[in-house]
Design a protein around this nucleic acid. Sequence first.
DNA 1: GTGTTGACCACAG
DNA 2: GCTGTGGCCAACA
Length: 120
Amino acid sequence: MKPGVTFFQKLVYEATRKIPKGRVATYGQIARFIDNPKAARAVGNALNRNPFAPASTRNRCLSNRGKPRVPCHRVVASDGSIGGFASGPKKKAALLKTEGIKVRKGRLVDFSKKLLVKIR
DNA sequence: GTGTTGACCACAG
DNA sequence: GCTGTGGCCAACA
């Protein structure tokens, strides 16, 4: 694995990359997927610290070419709120809109329907 | 090795 | 609906 990127982070990125377009998943679901159901917070922490930036650049979730590597914007909080985003929640909302997901008052419209895996 | 921090989650009121 | 509280985990100083 790449220097500066921990194993845990790698797991998070791998899981996040599997989220299909037009769908979203919660931090908790990601945590479950990597077999650490309680590590939802750590998941967000991992994404914030190093959203898969190439060693030579400080790219966040988007590459310098505009191609999303890890679709961080598809990862939201369990209640459908945007949660956080390194480049700003506003940016995140815009990206989601691009994928056909509307954002209303900082929360996803039809959140439960767009959700990759149903909660509870 | 210890304590702080955070893009969280679940529950109670 | 919103707010507060307690708890989880990993990264970092």
